[in-house]
């Protein structure tokens, strides 16, 4: 919630509330990041004005290796988990958590990696939204009406 408030233009909605529901259908690690990524796309799809998109991805450490996007077993038996969410364009960190054990350089590596992952996620978000509006295009044609003004009287001509 705190991560999304940074990007939604809440000032355009005085005295109102935007509710976002995330249903985790199957938990297999990374639910926080997946929920946030989905919520961001859902808000955009709903036409809620936003400054930027939020994209999330986690990094972690298993067997001394800093890796991207831990699976369930890796999360349970790994040494650290670092979920991260950034705003897609100005790369500001809006969600950052970490648990486990990391040195400074490992943490730096994990954050950089999660950031890279988030940018990949953002590409997919953008594509998904584009696809959605591509699919809507034929419908839009039907709805579009041309308005001609003849002798001062507007006339609607369906295309």
């Amino acid at each position: 919630m705190e991560a999304l408030s940074r990007v939604v233009l809440l000032e355009q909605f005085p005295n109102s509330m935007i509710k976002v529901f995330c249903e985790v259908l199957q938990a297999e690690a990374g639910t926080r990041c997946a929920s946030l990524t989905a919520a961001s796309v859902a808000l955009a799809d709903a036409g809620i004005p936003m400054k930027d998109m939020v994209a999330a991805c986690a990094a972690g450490k298993i067997d001394g290796q800093v890796v991207l996007d831990l699976g369930k077993k890796e999360d349970n038996f790994g040494e650290a988990d670092v979920p991260l969410a950034i705003t897609a364009h100005d790369e500001e960190i809006v969600l950052l958590q970490m648990d486990g054990a990391l040195s400074k350089s490992e943490f730096e590596k994990a954050v950089a990696l999660a950031k890279k992952g988030s940018k990949e996620v953002y590409k997919l978000q953008k594509e998904a939204l584009k696809r959605r509006y591509q699919a809507l295009k034929p419908e839009l044609k039907v709805v579009r009406k041309e308005i001609k003004i003849e002798d001062g009287h507007p006339m609607e001509v369906s295309k």
């Binding site: 705003t87 500001e92 960190i93 970490m98 943490f107």
Partner: peptide, 14 residues
């Protein structure tokens, strides 16, 4: 480092 947690509506740079 054993845990980190960001809070609040704002954001941080790396």
């Amino acid at each position: 480092l054993c845990a980190a947690q960001k809070g609040g509506f704002g954001s941080f740079k790396e």
